[in-house]
Amino acid sequence: MPHSDTPEPYRYTLAERLYLPLLGGMWVTLRHFVGNLLGRRTSYTIEYPEERRAYSHRFRGHHILTSRPDGSLRCVACFLCATACPAECIHIEAGEHPDVNVEKYPVVYDIDMLRCVFCGYCVDACPEEAIIMSNNYDMAFFNRASSVVTKEELQKPFTYDQARLGYRPRYPEEEEQRARARRELQAGRVDLVGEARRRQEAAAAGPESSKSAAASS
């Protein structure tokens, strides 16, 4: 056997034998303690539910069924989302739509929220951008029956506003930002390290800005 058969454990240094490094450790904890007590250092805790962590616009939360301008669902009951779903939590029953151009619409569109694993495959699969996800994670149910959300609930989620949209296929605002960032980077105008440092300093400066910075980073 080419491998050694006796382990050689670590040998203590003299300082370690004398418990001296403990003082260094105590200094660390003391520094944190006093710093937090006096509020000089930023506290990492966020005060949920008053204060929320800033999640990105890709967050995979509660689903939303989008509507056409006339208020009807965009969904054409093509079953792609139900097929793509690894948890098989989407239940659709299709019906004949009065408008021949649309052909089909979902009579029933239920998602079992307790089965759902929020993988976003339904959003990827949808060819109509009819199902997207919101930024909403505040969900709790008191029984299994109420966890099956119907199309009416999915169409009017309680947090449907532009700011709280989550995972969806296109991010036009991000595209713009990315293009700008690339241009600036190529022009050598942007200093990423300096920017990160500035952000950190800003975080250290005031508790108001610090919390938002800590939450976003």
């Binding site: 962590r53 307790l114 994670y137 969900m139 149910f141 008191f142």
Partner: peptide, 21 residues
């Protein structure tokens, strides 16, 4: 079960929301 919290896994906020419920 008294409260079901969906998510896979739920975010920490989600769990806290469930406990507050």
């Amino acid at each position: 079960v008294d409260v079901y919290v969906p998510g896979c896994p739920p975010t920490p906020e989600g769990l806290m929301y469930g406990i507050l419920q």
